[in-house]
Nucleic acid binder design. Structure first.
Ligand SMILES: [Mn+2]
Ligand SMILES: [Mn+2]
Ligand SMILES: [Zn+2]
Ligand SMILES: [Zn+2]
Lengths: 140, 140
DNA sequence: AATTATTTGCAAATATGTCGCAATTTGTGC
DNA sequence: GCACAAATTGCGACATATTTGCAAATAATT
């Protein structure tokens, strides 16, 4: 396996983009803290980074498939995409706000493929969110 | 089957809310035009409705389970909930922006239930979005 | 180290969402 | 249909989130 930062660099390079200090920072922050809202990401990036740069970086990253947006609860969040972590989906506890990653499930994945294929839709990507109450919270 | 507008009225009534002109308008717009972003919904509601009223209506509708939010592409959209149309999910064409509703699939739905049950997560609701290129667009 | 193209930070512009309050509309009972 | 009380709207003012232009700083290349 390649160093994540090297993979980032080469992905950027392949698209004529350079790996800058702000871009590195956003990447490592996402790496360390999982799915974050923009506000959290901006906050976590520290005072050294400007809001605008974070937005610009995320926009670029999304275009290059480095990150993906998820709808979790009310706001969207950003996390590293499948090139940087295992494909997975989320359960969101509407009580405590916890986000639980669920492991990849072959049955589920194949079924989605099939449904798309049925209508000649060329599926590239998908997202699943299950909302409810986590085990912890339901134990009253 | 009940008239949708009657169902709307009684849902509102059950919660001590009245069916007003703006609320009727938002409902029929959603009925006619499917999943819309807030901007589209406000626009489609015409000059007669104020932005704030549309937001207030959607907030209320969401609390009463009349509409639901979906993450589709970049922004969220609003559509009538399962009480007013069959449970379904969406494929989003990243080329033309088309949103295709896919019919309910029992295998898929049951698998999601099972995955949640496995970790004692009490699932209430879920969302699936498949992104890719629609048949129309891929025909070049 | 110098050169040049890219990218950043800042400040200002838009876009999106919320709130208080007076004026209007709704549901209800005559 | 009309009068009344309660609920709701539209408006303007805020608050927050996201985008943009541009001069200054940084990165890749030689
Ligand atoms: Mn995740
Ligand atoms: Mn739909
Ligand atoms: Zn919980
Ligand atoms: Zn298409």
């Amino acid at each position: 396996m390649i160093e994540p930062l090297e993979q980032l660099r080469s992905t950027l390079q392949d698209h004529g983009q350079s790996l800058t200090r702000p871009r590195k920072k956003v990447f490592t922050t996402l790496q360390a803290k999982g799915p974050l809202t923009m506000a959290e990401l901006i906050q976590a990036s520290g005072t050294s980074l400007d809001r605008a740069s974070v937005y610009r970086t995320i926009k670029l990253y999304e275009q290059l498939g480095i990150v993906q947006r998820l709808q979790i609860g009310w706001k969207y969040r950003v996390e590293l995409s499948n090139s940087f972590q295992h494909h997975h989906h989320h359960m969101y506890c509407t009580q405590c706000g916890n986000v639980i990653a669920m492991p990849e499930d072959t049955v589920l994945e194949e079924r989605l493929q099939a449904l798309a294929a049925n209508i000649s839709f060329s599926a590239q990507d998908h997202q699943i969110e299950i909302r409810g109450i986590c085990a912890n919270c339901s134990r009253t």
